[in-house]
């Protein structure tokens, strides 16, 4: 089964389902942030999640690789299924399962979170060498390949402090790619950037999408969603209110809340 509503054609380039979230609920104290989310994402699919701030979209993304432990529900990524277990969240076995999920689904952050005490190449090879156990010279070759892909090979020896925001986010993408995850999760990757730097990051992401990288992106960039998404999800009040191909959701949404959201967005 795919994440597409019944009766809608599934884009032909998509593979089998690789991310399967079931019944995700999340409470922060009394605040019921996610109210039962089911989400399927197929291999090579680019899914964009849009919605007002506070709609739960970032929390959903963080639940997918357990940076937030869901209160209820399960996440399966590439055959590994992990149940939410807030009560035994610190058990060794559970931690190891979560780590395996994160190896499959790597997260990119709004604030880039490059390691400031390591050079660009150091950022990229740290995890491949120490987590995947790849020999250093191979890891460097891998990192150079991906730095070249994001157009920053010449910055390999710089420290993050000397990069612009857009360059930092591109390095962060290269760093994530070095772990060769099955899925990339982007949490508002351009929200912390000056307007003139957004384009370079979106270009890299669009290229990845067109190459068939599976990605789930929380974004406010509607134009980008239209260009690069296979599917757009609109979230409101902790549920998926409607989803479908970008033209449908962004041009002729069914739900009143989606229309309101888009109207406000297109005015701004």
């Amino acid at each position: 089964m795919s994440g597409y509503p019944a009766g809608q054609p599934v884009p032909p380039h998509l593979g089998e389902v690789i991310v399967e979230a079931r019944g995700i609920e999340k409470y922060f104290g009394d605040n019921h942030v996610l109210r039962g989310i089911d989400l399927d994402v197929s291999r090579r699919e680019a899914v964009m999640i849009v919605g007002r701030s506070g709609s739960g979209k970032t929390t959903l993304l963080r639940c997918l690789n357990f940076l937030e432990e869901p209160t209820v529900g399960s996440v399966e990524i590439d055959g590994l299924r992990v149940e939410a277990a807030p009560l035994r969240a610190r058990s060794k076995a559970h931690q190891e399962q979560i780590r395996q999920i994160r190896l499959r689904a790597s997260m990119l952050f709004q604030e880039f979170a490059l390691f400031p005490h390591m050079s660009v190449i150091g950022n990229c090879i740290e995890s491949p060498v120490r987590v995947r156990g790849i020999p250093r010279h191979e890891a460097e070759a891998l990192a150079e390949k991906y730095l070249d892909k994001v157009g920053l090979l010449e910055k390999r020896n710089e420290y993050p402090a000397r990069l612009s925001g857009g360059q930092k986010q591109r390095v962060a993408i290269a760093r994530a790619l070095c772990m060769e995850p099955k899925v990339l999760l982007f949490d508002e990757p351009t929200s912390a950037l000056d307007p003139e730097l957004i384009g370079e990051v979106l270009n890299v992401m669009e290229e990845l999408a067109h190459e068939g990288t599976t990605m789930i992106v929380v974004t406010h960039e509607m134009h980008f969603a239209r260009e690069a998404a296979d599917r757009v999800i609109f979230m409101e009040g902790g549920v998926i209110l409607e989803q479908g191909p970008p033209e449908q959701i962004l041009n002729s949404p069914k739900e009143e809340a989606t229309k309101r959201f888009l109207r406000r967005f297109l005015q701004a």
């Binding site: 690789n65 940076l67 780590r99 997260m107 952050f109 995890s127 772990m179």
Partner: peptide
Amino acid sequence: PPSQREAAQALGMPERLAFRRIVLPQAVR
């Protein structure tokens, strides 16, 4: 910043490795 620990974890680092290689060097500074 907590995002440093999260970024390390998102790259698959176990807790101890993330502490030793990412958090501690920055804390020392």
